[in-house]
């Protein structure tokens, strides 16, 4: 294995570590907001490292560009989804414990 493959493997491993940490946080942390915190770290940083690692192995420019497009799109979607979930949680806690868990 050449140095670029080693580097690629290290980066993907770091990414996987963030995903595992995020998953552990999702299960272990006490409430929605802290869980969201763990989850988005995994999505943002973990996916970033994996994409970077894989892009070192890209066979063509087109493949590289597709890979690099993935990360900002996922970043955008996950941060917006995180915001929306957090907003819904806040709205519900304001409404009191009797409100339904998942109205929107």
């Amino acid at each position: 294995m050449g140095p670029s493959e080693w580097l690629s493997m290290v980066m993907v491993s770091v990414g996987v570590f963030f995903f595992i940490a995020g998953s552990v946080g999702l299960i272990r942390l006490p409430d929605v907001l802290t869980r969201l915190h763990a989850l988005t770290k995994a999505d943002n940083v973990g996916l970033g490292f994996i994409v970077l690692g894989l892009s070192l192995q890209a066979g063509s420019l087109l493949e590289l560009m597709k890979l690099l497009l993935l990360w900002p799109l996922a970043l955008l979607a996950s941060s917006c989804a995180c915001y929306l979930v957090a907003e819904a949680t806040l709205l519900q806690s304001r409404r009191g414990p009797g409100a339904r868990r998942h109205v929107r």
Partner: peptide
């Protein structure tokens, strides 16, 4: 939708719809 959609959803739509 039950709640008025916030500005973030709007941003998301504007950014994601073209791609």
């Amino acid at each position: 939708p039950a709640e008025p959609a916030g500005p973030i959803l709007d941003v998301l739509v504007k950014a994601l719809l073209p791609p």
